[in-house]
């Protein structure tokens, strides 16, 4: 028994030797199909929530594909798809200065204010 396999991958044992390449190379196929991020509204009254992504040739096909991939069991009542390239995001670092101002403004939270216990409905 060699040591080049392990139980990675959920569905069972697979090799993990150095011969298994992981570095991405430029795609040979479907490079023309953009990546779409998919958002699903679980039911009326809820926000659309990000559920994953897929590749599709155009917006319409992206919606159809999203329906098949992400809502096979009534997981949603509405789907948004948006090209991943069109999303603008904040810096990935959660300690980024972008969010720092909210950290030192404790007075924005209700717990900042001391109110006597016997004040009703507060």
């Amino acid at each position: 028994m060699s040591t080049d396999v392990t139980a990675e991958g959920g569905h069972g044992a697979i090799p993990t030797g150095p011969e298994v390449p992981v570095a991405p190379k430029p795609a040979a196929t479907r490079r023309d199909w953009p990546l779409y991020e998919v958002f699903v509204r679980g039911k009326r009254g809820l926000n659309h929530v990000h559920v994953g992504s897929l590749h599709a040739p155009d917006d319409e096909m992206a919606v159809h594909a999203a329906r098949d991939v992400y809502t096979r069991r009534n997981e949603g009542v509405s789907i948004w798809v948006v090209k991943a390239a069109d999303i603008t995001a904040s810096s990935p670092d959660e300690k980024d200065p972008m969010f720092a101002p909210s950290g030192d403004k404790v007075y924005r939270h209700p717990t900042f204010y001391e109110i006597p216990e016997d004040v009703p409905h507060m």
């Binding site: 569905h11 044992a13 991405p24 040979a28 196929t29 990546l35």
Partner: peptide, 23 residues
């Protein structure tokens, strides 16, 4: 793909038997 991989490329690696699947 969130890790920088490309799925068409991964499929190619499977077909070229450079990556494996469960026995």
């Amino acid at each position: 793909e969130t890790l920088g991989a490309d799925r068409a490329d991964l499929t190619d690696k499977l077909i070229e038997q450079k990556q494996k699947y469960s026995s």
